[in-house]
Design a protein around this nucleic acid. Sequence first.
DNA 1: CATGAAAGAATCTCTAT
DNA 2: ATAGAGATTCTTTCATG
Lengths: 170, 170
Amino acid sequence: MSQSGKPRRGGDRAEGHVFDGVDRRILDILQREVDRPVTSIAEEVGLSPTPCWRRIKRLEETGVIRARVALVDQRLANVPMTVFISVKVPSHAKTWLDDFRALIEAIPEITEAYRLTGDVDYILKVVVPDIAAYDLVYKAMIERMDFSQISSSISMEELKFTTALPVDHL
Amino acid sequence: MSQSGKPRRGGDRAEGHVFDGVDRRILDILQREVDRPVTSIAEEVGLSPTPCWRRIKRLEETGVIRARVALVDQRLANVPMTVFISVKVPSHAKTWLDDFRALIEAIPEITEAYRLTGDVDYILKVVVPDIAAYDLVYKAMIERMDFSQISSSISMEELKFTTALPVDHL
DNA sequence: CATGAAAGAATCTCTAT
DNA sequence: ATAGAGATTCTTTCATG
């Protein structure tokens, strides 16, 4: 994968900007260690510091780089448990969805939420210290809203977690 | 949630270190903008720069802060599509799991993978440019390994995505 | 128009009080 | 906690090909 077979045309995006292999390599580095000095990155991609710095700055200004964040260890932050909640909606009224959005935003333990195709309507990723804390989240949800169905799956093991998007498609 | 009702005892972790409310506030900031100057963070949490800097450094050394990374926009990086793959395993042999781990590691489009309780054994998060690219990932998987069952759900909408863990449990 | 060199500003890192 | 020195990095400007 990550090799579609199509010839690379330079990777023009919707916004009209063109990225090349050097941009990809810069992003690949920044997605793993954003505190690397520009000179070090420049060296690795075979550029002098100034043009490299300009590329990074442009990647920020165009929004390709959305944010620079610290990733925190789940266990050391006392939220070692990850639970996935599958939700079916009881109503397709707009008010229900609005309430659901507000609920999701209000609960920091819910770190991800997606609306899906298929028989499950939404999937939520929840991080908590333990089952008891998860139960509090669960209760808070069903107290505030109606659900047609909710089912939980506990993550027994995280095999992979990366925030680095594949860059080969750029 | 995120308020368990128990009195805060300072939040001693497994490693024996004690975090307080200031550490929580620092982490909360760093999880959103890691490039904030130390002096600015110090000001916000009501500390002078030096002790604030020392706290941040300790958070790094103890591994609470795992990494500092750039978050890239999915759409602008040409991987706007998110797909969740549910997998059931055909065999509980160790070799199968080893192969599965290697497969997951080898495919950069698979950004997350978890082993779950319940009827689904694993769930994978995959980011790709489009259906065609997804199909390549899918084919690469079933060509390399056997699965008892695979089912895909396409994300129609990302309601929430944050890498910031809740800090109230620390 | 992109590159490379270099100067000034800001920040980081650590020491001393 | 504060002050501050020295090193590093960032950001901009300018000359060059």
